[in-house]
Computed example of a mutant assay.
Amino acid sequence: TAASCALSFLPQIFSIVVFGSIVNECYVNRDSQDPELLCIFNQNESACSYGIAVGIIAFFGCIFFFVVDLHFQQISSVKDRKRAVLLDLGFAGFLSFLWFVAFCFLANQWQRTTMTKGVSQGADAARAAIAFSFFSIITWVGLALKALQRYRLGTDMSLFATEQFAAEPGAPYPGYPAGSGVESAETYQSPPFTETLDANPKGYQLPLLFC
């Protein structure tokens, strides 16, 4: 859906805004006589370094999992699919925590910053880094919930297929239960933990018909 696509690309945009703002405008001179560049967040180098590091990690992490998602349907092993979804879930939760720390750290250091002429020039960039750190928390929590929902759906469908279908091989194919979210063809989504079956199994021969 459009909402899912937007949620997938927002973390990348937010991470670019955060580390781009810090790198370009959050290193300022203490005064016009001192050429040394200092971090705008209370002259704490750790604050700027942490914001840049989290932004870069989030950016490349988004690219990696976007590639994994593109090739997800080509993964035939159920165990590998589960590992991919669990890795996505763990990474999203970990990034949510890192962005929460970044927001608290940058906001705290900004409150302690003494406003000078050099600081006032980069104040907008500092506020943008803090604001988009907060927005990143929301988006990564949303991605974590999405991955959790995907994992639960895949687990439920794989258990349903292996336990119920295998127990009664001659029984007709049952319909999807009500409330599963797959009642209509428009909302159908392939369960993430099901293997692709060969339509023409090896060794099978059609029976001969005699006139």
Rank of each mutant, 00 (worst) to 15 (best):
F60T: 15
G51F: 00
T114W: 06
Q109A: 05
Q73T: 08
Y151A: 12
D31G: 05
L208G: 06
N29V: 05
A123N: 08
L209D: 10
F91Q: 04
R152Q: 15
L7N: 11
R127T: 09
D69N: 13
L95N: 02
F72H: 09
Q12D: 11
G179V: 02
S190W: 13
A171M: 13
Q121I: 06
S180L: 07
V68I: 14
F193V: 06
D31R: 01
W99E: 02
D69V: 01
E163V: 06
I16Y: 12
A185R: 10
A126F: 02
V17S: 08
A6G: 09
R112S: 13
S8C: 11
L106N: 03
A161E: 14
S76F: 10
F97V: 15
T196H: 13
Y27D: 04
N200V: 06
I22H: 02
F165I: 15
V17K: 03
F165R: 15
S133P: 05
G93H: 02
L208Y: 05
E36V: 15
R81Q: 14
P35T: 08
A147H: 02
V141P: 04
W110T: 00
Q164I: 14
G181N: 07
A125V: 00
F103W: 11
F66T: 13
K82A: 07
A47I: 08
P207H: 03
A2I: 10
G142F: 03
S15V: 04
F193A: 01
L106F: 03
A147Y: 03
P172W: 11
I40W: 05
A129G: 02
T1R: 14
V67F: 14
E183W: 03
M157K: 10
L37S: 14
G118P: 01
L7P: 03
G51V: 00
E163H: 12
G93D: 01
S77T: 01
A161P: 01
Y176P: 07
Y27A: 01
D124T: 13
S136R: 08
E45S: 13
L38T: 11
A178R: 14
S184M: 12
L159G: 07
E36Y: 09
S136A: 11
D69A: 15
Q109R: 10
V18S: 09
S4E: 14
L10Y: 11
A125R: 01
L37V: 09
L143P: 01
I40V: 11
L98D: 00
D80M: 10
A178V: 13
K117T: 12
I57S: 12
T155M: 07
E195P: 05
G154D: 04
R112G: 14
A84S: 15
P201I: 09
P191T: 12
V54P: 06
A84F: 05
Y151R: 05
F135Y: 15
L209M: 10
S136I: 04
I52G: 00
V182W: 09
S8I: 06
C39R: 03
A185V: 12
V101S: 09
C26T: 04
V54W: 03
V68K: 15
T196Q: 12
C39Y: 00
G154Y: 04
L37Q: 12
T113S: 06
Q189A: 13
S120L: 06
C62I: 10
A161Y: 13
K202C: 05
L159F: 12
P169L: 06
T162Y: 07
Y27V: 00
F59V: 03
